Computed example of a mutant assay.
Amino acid sequence: MEQSSIGRIELHGFNNLTKSLSFNMYDICYTKTREEREAYIEYIDDQYNADRLTEILNHVADIIGAHVLNISKQDYVPQGASVTFLISEGPVVEVPTDTREETPGPLPTSVVSQLDKSHITVHTYPEYHPYEGISTFRADIDVSTCGEISPLKALNYLIYSFDTDIMTIDYRVRGFTRDKHGKKLFIDHEINSIQNYIPDDVKKLYQMIDVNVYQEHIFHTKCKLKNFDLNNYLFGYKKDVLSKEEQQVITEKLRTEMDEIFYGKNIN
């Protein structure tokens, strides 16, 4: 289903549409022993601690043209971290010409637009299976904006910032704004798929499924890496130290874990 073309719109006042992007990513690892598991969790907590997450969100704020009002951040014990930005309208220099187009957004550069009453949050969830040797790192990032630019323009950078085996991406436009004649507008930009905001070289790496409700301006895309290399899922060693039987068992466990996350159900 294709959307009708939306040209440049002259609004009655400020753009009151709320555009929300939820980016959910998973990194999966096989950790055979308690020592491996603890080392993996420690590695994740170091790589994605509150300070590093704050740096990532600062770049997101730059991309969507936000002025940061307040930052709240916390590293948790025993693991995990959270960061929340309250953001408002940034300094308006020029609205990017591709703001309304379905194209991937930039990596960190100076991009500015109007924005108000919005927020950016990230929460991390390192966890592990009680006895199957699987450890999983999950991060949830939410970007909610009011204004002309879509938070989808931050998606390319978010994918770039995390080592991701599986991604689940949701986008929704809520509320309405008015044009200069008072007519309600429930969306102000064209969108057929979140995939159009992901670079082609990234899309080639993933199996991707869309579930969209166009009438409600709700868009959902989930992605799973196509190629599987066991070496990428072992922490601190390579598969050569394992027997062929061990490699087969571990591969099956990892693939099952990935499929369960991707399809959202347990596989017996």
Rank of each mutant, 00 (worst) to 15 (best):
I87F: 04
I87H: 03
I87L: 05
I87M: 06
I87N: 03
I87G: 01
S88I: 05
S88G: 09
S88E: 11
S88H: 11
S88C: 10
E89R: 12
E89G: 15
E89T: 12
G90I: 08
G90C: 09
G90Q: 07
P91K: 06
P91T: 04
P91L: 07
P91I: 04
V92R: 08
V92L: 15
V92W: 07
V92C: 02
V93L: 13
V93C: 02
V93T: 13
V93A: 08
V93W: 11
E94G: 06
E94Y: 08
E94L: 03
E94I: 01
E94T: 09
V95W: 04
V95K: 10
V95C: 02
V95T: 14
V95F: 07
P96L: 06
P96C: 10
T97D: 13
T97S: 13
T97K: 14
T97L: 14
D98Q: 10
D98N: 14
D98R: 06
D98W: 05
T99Y: 15
T99P: 00
R100V: 04
R100Y: 15
R100L: 08
R100D: 10
R100T: 09
R100F: 14
E101Q: 11
E101P: 00
E101S: 10
E102G: 03
E102M: 15
E102S: 15
E102C: 12
T103C: 14
T103K: 15
T103L: 15
T103Y: 12
P104L: 05
P104D: 04
P104M: 06
P104T: 09
G105T: 05
G105V: 10
G105I: 07
G105M: 08
G105K: 05
P106C: 11
P106I: 10
P106F: 13
P106K: 12
L107S: 14
L107C: 12
L107V: 14
P108I: 06
P108G: 07
P108W: 07
P108Y: 07
T109M: 13
T109Y: 05
T109G: 02
S110P: 03
S110D: 12
V111A: 13
V111C: 07
V111L: 14
V111F: 00
V112W: 04
V112C: 04
V112G: 05
V112D: 06
S113V: 00
S113W: 00
Q114C: 09
L115M: 08
L115I: 08
L115S: 05
L115H: 01
L115A: 06
L115F: 00
L115K: 00
L115T: 07
D116N: 10
D116T: 11
D116A: 12
D116K: 11
K117W: 06
K117Q: 11
K117C: 01
S118A: 15
S118Q: 02
S118E: 04
H119Y: 15
H119D: 10
H119A: 12
H119Q: 14
H119P: 00
H119V: 09
I120E: 01
I120P: 00
I120M: 09
I120D: 02
I120R: 02
I120A: 03
T121I: 01
T121V: 03
H123Y: 02
H123M: 01
T124R: 01
T124F: 03
T124Q: 03
T124V: 03
T124L: 02
Y125I: 10
Y125C: 05
Y125F: 15
Y125D: 06
P126M: 04
P126Q: 02
P126V: 06
P126I: 05
P126H: 03
